[in-house]
Simulated assay, not measured.
Amino acid sequence: MPGLRLEGKNAIVTGAAGGIGLETTILFLREGASVVMADISEPALEKAVAKAKEAAPEMVGKIKTAKCDVSKEDNIKALVDSVDEWGGVDIMFNNAGIMHADDADAVDTPEKIWDMTQNINVKGVWFGSKHAVLSLRKHNKKKGSIINTASVVALVGAATPQLAYTASKGAVLAMTRELAIVHAREGFRFNALCPAPLNTPLLQDWLGDDQAKRHRREVHFPTGRFGEAIEQAQAVLFLASDEASFVNGSDFVVDGGMTKAYVTPEGPALAAPSNLAR
């Protein structure tokens, strides 16, 4: 498939069973990449694979799956090693993460929730980055792209308390910046995606039926709506591609202007555009 943006590339996507991970997987496949879809939930992963195959039927033979707990280094090592038969990883999207319903402020966040969040959101990105670098070196790659999912809450305070999550995403941002500098001369680019709150199952489950909590978030969007996962996936595709060859160490913010707004105009919430590229 000549002319595709990721032709001949091998990619790993963690947290691939839904949201940004699934949408990114589909775009990667459509642009010619072979993709390992990794997630901790096997049932969710099975459903996601079916969606990916339906969306990119010509790439069915280029999809592999792996159950993976990103907080465990042996899981990540096995995941990255599974790409050896394809020639090693070229693109690593460390996207898996959690935002637990019991995550609150400094007083009310349980220690077990803090530890769980840091283990998945921070250690998972560290392990993914570490083993991606080792794979790139092992296969003598002269360039590689590692994208880590952070959040706008790594840049601004959250509208509602979610201390463990916010701290974890700040750590991802700092880690990504340092890795970008350390490995720049090797040709390995590290960038952090900073999404605003999105219309994904993760956020919707966390918000639940709490309309006050929902409104405290929506009011900060100049657009009057949450973002969509596909809008983040388009940014990940750019960062993964050679079009972003001089983009390294960035806090790549995709937030509809949220972090630039002091106040937002009153008005009805807007529906998501119906013509989002797929």
Rank of each mutant, 00 (worst) to 15 (best):
K62E: 14
A154K: 00
W126I: 07
K141R: 11
A56R: 08
F238R: 09
K213M: 12
Q234N: 13
A240P: 11
K141P: 05
N199V: 02
L193R: 09
A158E: 02
L193G: 06
A96I: 08
I40D: 02
S250D: 13
A167Y: 07
K72W: 01
D209P: 07
S145D: 04
W206V: 12
V60P: 03
L193D: 10
I146N: 01
A158V: 01
A16I: 10
A235R: 08
E231R: 03
R30Q: 15
R189G: 00
A158W: 01
P268W: 00
G97T: 06
L179Y: 10
K72A: 12
L207Q: 08
I98Y: 05
A11W: 02
V172S: 00
F252N: 02
T65C: 04
K53W: 05
W126S: 02
M258H: 12
V35L: 02
G224D: 04
L202S: 09
A48V: 10
K62P: 06
K143C: 09
L79M: 09
A44Y: 05
I181C: 05
L4E: 10
A44G: 14
G224S: 11
A101K: 14
D102V: 04
V253Q: 06
T259I: 12
D242W: 02
A164D: 02
G8V: 05
P201S: 09
K53Y: 03
K138I: 11
A132F: 13
D251I: 01
T223R: 10
F226S: 05
D84V: 09
N10T: 14
N119K: 15
K77Q: 15
E178N: 15
L173W: 00
T166M: 07
V247S: 06
K213L: 13
K72Y: 03
F221E: 04
H215V: 11
N119H: 14
V49P: 00
V182E: 11
G187D: 09
M59S: 14
G144F: 08
I181V: 14
V236D: 03
M37A: 06
K67N: 07
V80M: 04
L239C: 12
D115A: 12
A235K: 07
V107R: 15
D39H: 05
A38H: 03
P57Q: 07
W206L: 15
G208A: 05
P268G: 07
E178M: 14
T117K: 05
H100V: 13
T176K: 00
A244D: 12
E54D: 15
P273M: 08
W206N: 15
M99H: 11
S245W: 06
I230D: 08
G249F: 04
A212R: 11
D103N: 03
V253E: 06
F127V: 06
K112M: 06
G21Y: 05
T223A: 13
G32Q: 07
G3D: 12
E111H: 13
L22M: 03
S145G: 07
M92V: 09
K213V: 11
A106R: 05
V89M: 10
E31C: 03
V13N: 00
D242T: 04
I113S: 12
V107L: 15
A212W: 08
K143M: 10
D74W: 03
A180I: 13
S168A: 15
T65V: 13
Y165H: 11
L237C: 07
G61R: 07
D74A: 10
V13R: 00
L276V: 10
G8N: 14
A33T: 01
A244S: 15
E218I: 15
F252G: 02
M258T: 14
V152E: 04
A33F: 00
